[in-house]
Design a protein around this nucleic acid. Structure first.
Lengths: 240, 240
DNA sequence: ATCAGATATTTTGTTAACAATCCTGTCAAC
DNA sequence: GTTGACAGGATTGTTAACAAAATATCTGAT
């Protein structure tokens, strides 16, 4: 079907997506691990996917690369980033610096409605886990952390967190042990408990512990995704 | 005069500046307060200034706007950002979240050479203050904080700090009491003392205190720069 | 059959022309 | 004299053609 049949119907197609929305959509796809590290993001494919001109796509890719979610290689194109172990450590160090404070601020500033939203969110998270809908579970896990940043009401740190949560999804995709999920929602529930108790210090401590657990579940010695190290792969026998 | 006289001379002009460099240059100009808030950044002027095509400039402006250093208004152009009091508070809250930890990490990771560089830096800062070379003093003040982030060796947080330091310069330009400088270098020297003592906790505490002093010196009730509120300006008599 | 080199195709990067919007200065009407 | 509309100019936004680079394909020789 053609996109433009009747002018009125254009409203449903949202009259052309802004690059901001495109960035958001790609962020989401990366968070949900539907775009694994190293995936080629060709301009033409994205143009078709989003139904916009090349300029919009190029601007979106530039923004994504400035957030280090996309690797922009000259004359070669754009690829979903493949964080190195070093970058992974840096991302977690940044999160451990930001998020405990964010959690504390969020507790201090949360309204009754915020608490309701958090509770409702955890119900959804729980459901997704039990239904084994992996993508939805992953998405909601990340969303929980963003929800806290939103409640903390600091747009600067919220923006930082969007980048860090997205990159964390890539990191877990590469270095996460297969069995390990993104976040155990038990931890999230404990944090919610701290919110209901209005205990900022507890929220801060729980968040720090939560992040350490996640980082501890990574295997930062081995690299799985991205460019496979063929030397390492064929040097020794398979060990499984 | 024309830019291209002899091909050989092009080498001195650095064979076209990358947008990354342009962003850096504009960042610097904003930090040094040579580009006050609200300044129009017209594409043609920037093309001439940097000797590059319009595309490079537009990409640079997009990156700058994604860091909230430039305000990109549709069909109107790019302007140096004019942070609101709310944004100012958010920037300082983010810095108070990041920088004490950065200071602590920097102390833990500083090599002997880092200590030398820091010492040399403070000498330069001191000199600039005494010579009343305001721009240089401001630039070095900001640079000190970036130096710490560099020593902390976390590229994620370093990038965040570049944005925050730059925006802080805008904030001080708008809300800073005229007499107040960006940073009193006494504070910086105390922090260096903590480095030499290898006292991470002290560095962290001093940094937090330092930032609080700076924020305390702002007048977040009054707006000076950017778009002057004419209604507010002419509604009452001048009160000076 | 495999590999090297050359050609063709695809994809990205750049430039330039075109379209649309906004700002400014002028002129007419009230 | 002030207000409003209008036109000219300037600036930004978009599109499309073009150039350059990289990848893929094909041929031919060992």
């Amino acid at each position: 079907m053609t996109a433009v049949t009747h002018p009125i119907e254009d409203a449903s197609v949202a009259e052309e997506m802004a690059e901001e929305d495109i960035v958001e959509r790609i962020f989401d796809a990366v968070v949900e691990q539907r775009l694994p590290p190293g995936t080629k993001l060709s301009e033409s494919a994205l143009c078709e996917a989003f139904g916009v001109g090349r300029m919009r796509i190029r601007r979106a890719l530039l923004l994504l690369s400035s957030r280090e979610v996309v690797d922009l290689q000259a004359n070669r194109g754009a690829f979903v980033a493949s964080p190195t172990p070093q970058q992974a450590r840096e991302v977690f160090e940044a999160r451990l610096t930001l998020e405990p404070t964010i959690a504390r601020l969020a507790v201090e500033r949360a309204t009754e409605e915020d608490l309701k939203n958090l509770t409702a969110h955890l119900v959804k998270e729980h459901a997704a886990h039990h239904e084994y809908s992996r993508q939805e579970a992953i998405r909601l896990s990340g969303q929980f952390h963003l929800l806290l940043a939103q409640i903390a009401a600091n747009s600067v740190m919220l923006r930082m967190m969007k980048e860090l949560v997205t990159r964390t999804s890539l990191i877990i995709g590469i270095f996460g042990a297969p069995s390990v999920a993104n976040c155990r929602d038990d931890d999230h529930e404990r944090i919610l408990r701290a919110f209901k108790d209005r205990d900022g210090q507890a929220a801060s401590d729980l968040m720090a512990e939560h992040l350490r657990v996640i980082e501890g579940g990574l295997e930062l010695g081995t690299k799985k995704g991205g460019a496979v190290d063929l030397v390492d792969l064929f040097a020794r026998k398979r060990r499984v």
